[in-house]
């Protein structure tokens, strides 16, 4: 009997959901969201904010339907987008491309089919495909970090830099940083890739500490890398390094800034919640007459103990 019930309930649910899907082409619009999977801290935060925003907007706009897909590599992301177009007939696509080049043709195809396209963070290889570009400011991220270093070390000093995974993002940040510290007397004595990874940055920092007997500060350029750097400095028992500047806005690091930790006096944002901005603006564009096309740049902000509270999200995984 109970088997029958479950079966019946299942059938009804199935019928309802198919019915719902069929009925949607009248007045319901579908927004597809395609993002990289949570393979590191920042992406984890971005996934968290994407899910939260989708849940909230589904309540705010009953006429909107959302499809959220996470991909662990560029190939899978291309498949996701093709599936969204083929099976869900999306009216808009919000995409944070895994890599620019492989994602450009499929996103272009979506744009040509007439759907609205919002690109987040990483731009496509061909300009002008997207209707809206919500961009993080990588050169600005480097510049704000560099300016902070200069303000903290007016007499100059020796620093080491940990870089991320070799990408355009990383290059833009480092160039912005170098321009900002130019002529300030701050000397970058060494730079290596820590790959935005705690373990790698721990190893690199251990070796930097063996190589350089005197360092004044570290630009870890990322909060995950700052964790590894701090552990290495701690283990070596060195007290010449006065502070470590990370970046991105991991909640543990913001907490330390809030608490006035002298080793982590500041942080620079590169908010994973920019995905929320993109989804929100796209929803506004689909449901109202407000124009939202163009480029929306999210600036990188310096977080110090004065404003840290505003950037602290204890519930986010990042």
């Amino acid at each position: 009997m109970s088997y029958m019930k479950t079966l019946l309930a299942g059938c009804t649910a199935l019928a309802l959901s198919t019915g719902g899907a069929l009925a949607q082409d009248g007045d319901t619009k579908v927004i597809g969201v395609s993002i990289p999977a949570a393979t590191h801290g920042w992406a984890g935060g971005m996934n968290f904010h994407a899910q939260q925003t989708v849940e909230r907007l589904e309540k705010v706009y009953p006429q909107l339907d959302f499809v959220l897909a996470t991909a662990s590599d560029p190939g899978k992301q291309v498949n996701d987008i093709e599936d969204m177009v083929a099976t869900r007939n999306i009216d808009a696509l919000v995409v944070l491309p895994f890599e620019s080049d492989p994602l450009t043709p499929p996103v272009q195809a979506v744009a040509e089919s007439g759907a609205w396209v919002t690109v987040v963070d990483r731009g496509l290889s061909i300009p002008g495909i997207e209707d809206l570009y919500v961009a993080g400011d990588n050169p600005g991220f480097g510049r704000v970090s560099g300016e902070y270093m200069v303000s903290q070390m007016p007499d100059g000093g020796k620093i080491v830099v940990l870089r991320g995974i070799p990408t355009t993002i990383d290059n833009e940040r480092v160039e912005g940083f170098q321009q900002a510290i130019e002529g300030s007397g701050i000397e970058i004595v060494d730079m290596e890739h820590g790959n935005w990874n705690r373990d790698d940055s721990f190893n690199v920092m251990q070796d930097f500490l063996s190589k350089h007997p005197q360092l004044d500060a570290v630009w870890a350029s990322d909060d995950d890398m700052a964790v590894g750097v701090l552990a290495a400095i701690d283990a070596a028992g060195r007290d010449d390094v006065k502070f470590v500047l990370g970046g991105a806005g991991m909640k543990e690091m913001i907490k330390r800034v809030m608490d006035g930790d002298s080793m982590i006096p500041a942080d620079v944002t590169y908010p994973p919640s920019m995905i929320a901005t993109a989804i929100e603006l796209t929803a506004v564009g689909l449901t109202s007459n407000a124009p939202v096309s163009g480029t929306f740049t999210i600036g990188s902000v310096l977080i110090t103990s004065d404003n840290a509270e505003q950037f602290y999200y204890p519930d986010s995984p990042f």
Binding site: A37, G41, A43, G44, N47, F48, E252, S316, P317, F318
Partner: peptide
Amino acid sequence: VTWLADGGTLS
């Protein structure tokens, strides 16, 4: 492990 950590980091 990604699922256990909810995409973030377990500390």
